[in-house]
Amino acid sequence: MKFATPLIPGKLIQRYKRFLADVLTAGGVTVTATCPNTGSMLGLTTPGSTVWLSESDSPTRKYRHTWEMIENDLGTGPHLVGINTGKPNALVAEAIGLKVIPELAGYASLRREVRYGDENSRIDLLLSESKDPRPCYVEIKNVHLMRQAGLAEFPDCKTERGAKHLRELSSMVAQGNRAVMVFLVQRGDAETFRLASDLDPAYATAFQAAVAAGVEMLCYGCRLSPSEIIVDRRIEMTDLA
């Protein structure tokens, strides 16, 4: 996925009110950017960090800039981390089309944000029309937490909504469908993945229940630059019990 224009570098001044961040751009101008991330962003909000912003020319937007990436160094050198949780759905859809995710290949139809379930929810991706007669319900989570070099983790805070999604996927399997959770790591330095059970034990419990119910779990990583993000590899999932 290429950005419409190259991202703008700057230094983070502060993140506040969850959805806003002040950034000093390389041009010496302080701007307020939208922060498209509802999580805690643990370890990724240190003032002075190098960040990367996209810019919109839409006249209806209150804030022209959107915070897309931050540089993070856990002792192996700085690596770009994608914090925009609005990107993973499109990234995974693109990767499926490019046959980068073989576990989700072979479907002729891909639809996004389709209503399903008993709670009027929307599934991130619905795949259908394949040799497998079952439709495939795909939920996608953005992963950016890393507390130990090379080890990506999810979630970065308590997420009741995330546990709900796991229960909904389990329900789809019970109805005879296929259901897959994709953890998309927007970090180039990730080698393995595990659940951050200490940050949200309830999510870990819901995860195990979903696995027992037949929900498939996948983790893929990305290569990032200020001009594009590319899903490029499967990542081993470990310590999930």
Rank of each mutant, 00 (worst) to 15 (best):
I235A: 04
L80Y: 14
F183N: 09
R18D: 08
M237C: 12
L20A: 11
Q208L: 12
L80M: 14
P36S: 05
E139F: 01
G28N: 06
A190M: 08
T25A: 06
A33S: 15
Q175Y: 14
A149R: 11
E153P: 09
V114K: 08
D73N: 15
R233W: 04
M1C: 01
A202V: 14
W67E: 00
L74H: 09
N72C: 14
E71K: 09
C136L: 14
S225A: 03
D200I: 04
T30N: 14
L199Q: 08
P9S: 13
E68S: 04
L24W: 12
K2M: 00
R112P: 05
M172D: 09
L24Q: 15
A196N: 15
R122D: 01
L166F: 09
A241F: 10
H65C: 10
L74G: 08
N84K: 04
N142W: 03
L184I: 02
R115A: 10
M181K: 07
S121K: 12
L7T: 07
D22F: 02
V92M: 02
S109Y: 06
S40D: 11
A4R: 14
L110Y: 01
Y107L: 00
R234C: 00
L74C: 11
A204V: 03
L169Y: 02
A174N: 02
P226F: 02
T66N: 10
G43S: 14
L110T: 10
V182W: 06
P36A: 13
L240R: 11
G162Y: 09
M69T: 07
V215K: 10
I13T: 12
G28L: 12
V51S: 05
V31G: 09
I123Q: 03
Q186K: 00
Q148N: 15
R15E: 05
Y116A: 02
I13E: 15
G39P: 06
Y16R: 08
S227T: 14
L169C: 06
D57A: 08
G10Y: 05
C222G: 09
R187I: 06
E153I: 13
P78T: 12
L184D: 08
A209W: 07
K2D: 00
G214A: 10
T45I: 11
I8Y: 05
Y116L: 07
L166S: 09
R167I: 05
G28F: 11
Q186P: 00
D132A: 05
I101C: 03
N142A: 11
A190W: 00
R64C: 01
D232V: 03
K11M: 11
T238S: 13
L20Q: 14
S225R: 08
L98N: 13
C222L: 04
K141I: 08
V81S: 13
P88E: 04
A174M: 07
L145D: 03
I230F: 04
N177V: 05
L20W: 09
L184A: 11
Y220E: 07
T38M: 10
V23M: 14
T76K: 14
R178Q: 07
D198Y: 02
K99N: 12
C35D: 02
E103F: 02
H165Y: 02
K99Y: 00
A105H: 04
R161T: 00
A179Q: 12
N84G: 13
V143S: 08
N84S: 08
K131C: 09
V114T: 11
S227L: 00
